[in-house]
């Protein structure tokens, strides 16, 4: 079953810079890479898929929903309910605890809190002891685990990750791949990773090369 499909996707920045992206199809449960050098448009494509940007032309269809047919609020809702995002930076709300950071992601998706699922996720990522801490009290590795937990808190069908491994050493890289496998067992998802990290090519197939 097709999870994600793009057709003749073009994005033009206000300064005139234009990206034309190749068409691709990502099937359900499939995990693949969007690879390319810095500045090649990987993050732009990922943000188009997330609905953070709107394409200048072309179509994006995720779970049979054409994103261009959604209004602003519909796009916000679709993104929060159907996609999980892992950002380049470990962004969290500094004034909230880690548990509240997970809770707000669920609240913004308009979903009831599911504490059992939250606890399962944190246990799988070995971070349940840290849930009352605030972001500034955690290490980069711990924040990355919470980023993964937050991306999956709404059980999305599609996970979009932007350079998740670029700052990891080999040991932490291996750990992260293991964690993704563990999470996959908890709740199956498709995944697209925008990366220029060649180590990931040994794990996942590149679906788009920019």
């Amino acid at each position: 079953m097709i999870m994600t499909e793009t057709k003749s996707l073009v994005y033009q920045y206000p300064n005139g810079k234009q990206f034309r992206f190749p068409d691709f199809i990502l099937n359900s449960g499939e995990k693949a890479l969007i690879s390319g050098k810095s500045g090649s448009g990987k993050t732009t494509l990922l943000h188009l898929l997330a609905g953070i940007l709107r394409p200048s032309s072309g179509k994006i269809i995720i779970e049979q929903q054409a994103l261009h047919s959604l209004g602003e609020s519909g796009l916000d809702r679709f993104r929060s309910q159907n996609t999980g995002l892992i950002f380049q930076q470990h962004l969290f709300l500094k004034s909230l605890t880690m548990s509240e950071n997970l809770a707000i992601a669920r609240s913004l998706a308009g979903k009831e809190q599911d504490n059992d699922w939250k606890q399962k996720l944190m246990q799988a990522l070995s971070i349940e002891q840290l849930q009352t801490k605030k972001p500034e009290q955690l290490s980069q590795g711990e924040l990355q685990r919470f980023s993964m937990a937050r991306a999956l808190i709404n059980r999305p069908a599609l996970l979009l990750a932007d350079e998740p491994t670029s700052s990891l050493d080999d040991e932490n890289f291996e750990q992260m791949i293991q964690l993704l496998h563990t999470l996959e067992k908890l709740s199956p998802f498709s995944m697209l990773i925008a990366t220029h990290d060649s180590r990931l090519k040994n794990v996942y197939q590149s679906i788009v090369s920019l």
Binding site: E72, L93, K94, A105, R150
Partner: peptide, 14 residues
């Protein structure tokens, strides 16, 4: 600004 962008990405409306 980072937090605001995060909230927007997580689904908060403008």
């Amino acid at each position: 600004m980072g937090e605001i962008a995060l909230l927007r990405a997580l689904g908060a409306s403008a």
